[in-house]
């Protein structure tokens, strides 16, 4: 039971990372109908930005830690979306209206280019952040096993929930959100009714990248180790989360993220750690085959 609760907590924090990235996949898919393969790399860049800022401030100990954390968070949320914007501008916008295969290939080209750029600039070896924010509450004990809820995990959950609420509000209440929904429905009509479609799409990428950068920061805090290659696996799993939740659906992405996080945590907790990535992929395949609309997605009847 205690072990179960611990895995539950671990799974939820892991799920927060996947969920935040999955929102980016889902939003971009909703608006331009394609998978932004390079989104996982944006997450990786977000983690690097956060690490650079945290180390650059040189305050990873003592009472200044909260300041450093906030600075890293704000910094990565400001710098990383520029990559999201540039990605759309360079790789997607010129190809709007081209055959699907072409867009897919630019997306994959970008997802090869970005990690290699980071590798060249930062080196291939792992980068570490000295542990910050240690300790936590012991919430349960039994059979010699102590369930801890660390401060970090609390921080992660608070951050994630805040962002989710904020973004849901943006999409439901603001003009930008309305423009986004209009573009999802019909881009030509949206353009005719005075919506700046290019800008709306670019902002969607920026929003997705913002969330991914936060996910990167969370990942960095939780594991303390990053390298240029983390975007690949985490990206695929977040994509799985988006598909599981129903691609195109925002609550679905979050739900999918938490589910994937939980599945992964329990899988490694109760079965084998080695095959935990296989579990995620298998879910992806199974969902796509048996329920391509995911849990909360709208059915997508092909128009003939």
């Amino acid at each position: 039971m205690e072990y179960f609760v611990q895995q539950l907590i671990n799974g939820l924090t892991l799920g927060a990372v996947y969920g935040l990235i999955a929102i980016g996949y889902t939003m971009v898919y909703g608006i331009i109908g394609m998978i932004n393969f390079a989104h996982g790399e944006i997450f990786m860049i977000g983690a690097f930005h956060a690490l650079i800022i945290a180390l650059g401030l040189g305050i990873t100990t003592g009472t200044w830690i909260p300041v450093a954390l906030v600075a890293a968070l704000v910094g990565t949320m400001l710098l990383t979306p520029i990559y999201g914007w540039a990605l759309e501008r360079v790789a997607y916008r010129p190809l709007r209206g081209s055959p699907r295969l072409a867009t897919l290939i630019t997306a994959i080209g970008m997802s090869i280019y970005l990690p290699n750029q980071v590798q060249l600039l930062q080196g291939a070896r792992i980068k570490t952040l000295p542990p910050v924010l240690q300790g936590g509450f012991e919430i349960m004990e039994g059979g010699g096993f102590v369930v801890t809820l660390s401060y970090l995990q609390i921080l992660i959950m608070v951050l994630t929930v805040t962002l989710m609420v904020a973004f849901t509000l943006i999409i439901e209440k603001t003009a930008l959100g309305r423009a986004q929904r209009a573009c999802e429905q019909d881009r030509t009509m949206a353009a005719l009714s005075g919506i700046n479609v290019d800008r709306t799409i670019a902002l969607t990428f920026v929003m997705g990248a913002t969330l991914a950068s936060v996910a990167g920061m969370i990942f960095l805090l939780r594991y303390g180790v990053i390298d240029f290659f983390i975007g690949f696996l985490v990206g695929i799993k977040a994509f799985t989360a988006a598909v599981l939740g129903g691609i195109g659906s925002l609550p679905g992405a979050m739900l999918g993220g938490f589910l994937i996080g939980l599945i992964e945590a329990f899988w490694s907790g109760y079965f084998t750690v080695e095959y935990k990535d296989v579990a995620a992929f298998s879910i992806l395949v199974l969902v796509l085959i048996f329920r391509p609309t995911g849990l909360l997605g709208k059915p997508d009847i092909e128009k003939v």
């Binding site: 930005h49 650079i52 180390l55 710098l79 600039l121 792992i126 570490t128």
Partner: peptide, 17 residues
């Protein structure tokens, strides 16, 4: 914006940064 972080700084490798 694109370069200030990743180009401007290089994170040292490994543990004990």
């Amino acid at each position: 914006g694109l370069t200030v972080g990743l180009v401007g700084f290089r994170i040292p490798d490994g543990i004990g940064a």
